[in-house]
């Protein structure tokens, strides 16, 4: 492997975006109230964003000087379709989490994840999704009492009914 660093596709754009972001944060830091005095809430943000702008500028210059990697393609080596697909799935999961509820959205997410990534038989995928979801629900909701979004699934009522049912069985 040669020691000369090559620029990956998209790297120049990324470093420029970082520089623009850093400059924006730098500008924002001056808008924090009371900027100017040494003890102001703005002093550390100004210092940190100044360092960001300087280092981001150095990186942009270095990156633009590097020759582009001849063999790598953005859509294949940096951001292949499978990653775009998974990121889209995560986005949809995040959006659905509160309105639809944890149980239903997580089940769909896991099932699709297994279908795309594991590519097992459908029955296997469903079984896996249910088992792992049950485990996560047991640990988080029942043992550690993290109240996960209920959405359209009325799980608290189910749990109350179940508890009542167990009580009357005893």
């Amino acid at each position: 492997m040669s020691r000369v660093l090559l620029r990956h596709p998209g790297e120049a754009l990324f470093s420029l975006a970082v520089l623009v972001g850093a400059a924006y944060l730098f500008w924002q830091a001056f808008h924090i109230a009371d900027a100017g005095s040494l003890s102001s809430p703005a002093s550390l943000p100004i210092a940190a964003s100044t360092i960001m702008v300087i280092s981001a500028s150095i990186i942009v210059i270095k990156t633009l000087r590097m020759p582009l990697h001849p063999e790598l393609r953005f859509s294949h080596h940096i951001f292949p379709p499978i990653i775009a697909l998974v990121m889209a799935l995560l986005l949809i999961f995040g959006l659905a989490l509160e309105p639809v509820g944890f149980l239903l959205s997580a089940f769909c997410f896991l099932l699709l994840g297994f279908v795309f990534l594991y590519r097992g038989k459908m029955l296997w995928n469903i079984g896996l999704a249910i088992t792992s979801l049950a485990l996560v629900y047991l640990i988080f909701r029942l043992i550690f009492q993290v109240v996960l979004p209920e959405g359209i699934v009325p799980e608290r009522e189910w749990l109350a009914q179940l508890a009542q049912w167990f009580e009357t069985q005893e």
Partner: peptide, 28 residues
């Protein structure tokens, strides 16, 4: 009877009547 109870809860659960408050866990 209990199974029927659970089932009706599943179907009707979103419209819990306030009269039997509290019918489920309360979040603090």
């Amino acid at each position: 009877k209990h199974i029927i109870g659970v089932l009706t809860a599943i179907t009707l659960s979103t419209s819990t009547v306030a009269a039997d408050y509290p019918s489920k866990d309360i979040q603090g």
